[in-house]
Amino acid sequence: MSEIEMKELEAIFDQKIANDEKIEPKDWMPEKYRKTHIRQISQHAHSEIVGMLPEGNWITRAPSLRRKVALLAKVQDEAGHGLYLYSACETLGVTREELYEQLHSGEAKYSSIFNYPTVTWADMGAIGWLVDGAAIINQVPLTATSFGPYARAMVRVCKEESFHQRQGFEIMMTLASGTQEQKDMAQDALNRWWWPSLMMLGPTDAESVHTEQSMKWKLKRKTNDELRQQFIDQTVPQAELIGLTIPDPNLKWNEETKRYDFGALDWDEFWQVVKGHGPCNKARMDARKNAWSKGEWVRDAAMAYAEKQELKLETA
C-alpha cells in the first residue's frame, strides 16, 4: 500500500470516528486501534470469567433456594458476557485460545476487584451493588463506543448488569433490615468492598496512561476521576437509604460543588493488587489455569469426534 493510499484510509477512518459512525471488523483500521481494542475487550472478557469465581464460591452455600437460583443465574450471565466479549474480540483477528494464554501467562489483565475474597454471604450483596454498580458506570458510555461489535455487546451486558446491581442492592437491603447479625454482616461487607470498588474505576487521571488516546476513539467518554465521582455521588444516598455507613471519615457533601468530597484512596494497595499480589490473585489464576488444563482432554475429544463425524459424512 502506498503512503498516499494509507493516508486516505486514515482520513476515512478519522472521519467515521468524528461522525460517530461505527467501525466494523472488515473496515480498515489503524493497527494501534486494533491492538488497543483487543487489549481492552479481552481484559473485559477476562474480568467476566475471573469474576465468576468469587461469586461461584457461594453457589453451594446460598441461604435460600431463591437466592441460590438467582446467584447461579447471575454467574451464568457473566459466562455469557465473557462469551460474547471473546467473540467480539475474535473479530479483530485473535483466537479465544490466544486470549486465554495471555490471561494465564499474566500478560493480559483483568479487573483487580476479583482478587479480593468473598468471605460472607453479604459479599454477594456488596459485589452486586458496588462492583456491578461501578462496572455499569464504566460500561454505559461504551454502548456508544466506536467499534461496532463491542458497542453492541455492551448494550446487552449493561442491561444484565443493571439487573444484577438491583439484585445485589436488594440482598444488602434485606440484610440491613434483618437481625443485628445480618446488619453487622452487611456493614462489614460494605467496609471491605468500598475502597476496592472505588479503585475499580482505575488509577487517577494523572497516572492513567491510556486515557487520552481512548477518549479520542470514544473507547472512553469520561476520565477515571469523573467516573469515580459519579459512582460516589450515586452510591452514598443508597447506603443512607438502607442505614449503612460508608467507611470514609472524610466523606462529606460539598454544597458548593454539589458533590461528595471523599478521603484519599490507598494507591499502594491498588498497585500491589494490579501487579499480582492481592489476597486472591494466585488462587484466581490457579482456578482458571486448572479449569483450562483439566478440560484439555475434553476439548480434544470433542474435536476428534467432530472430525470422525465429518469423515463419515464424506464417505457416506
Binding site: 470469567i49 453457589i59 441460590k68 447461579l72 459466562a79 479449569a291 483450562w292 484439555e296 475434553v298 476439548r299
Partner: peptide, 10 residues
Amino acid sequence: GELCGHGPNL
C-alpha cells in the same frame, strides 16, 4: 452448582 466457573470451556 459446584462446577459453575470451572468447566472445560464456556
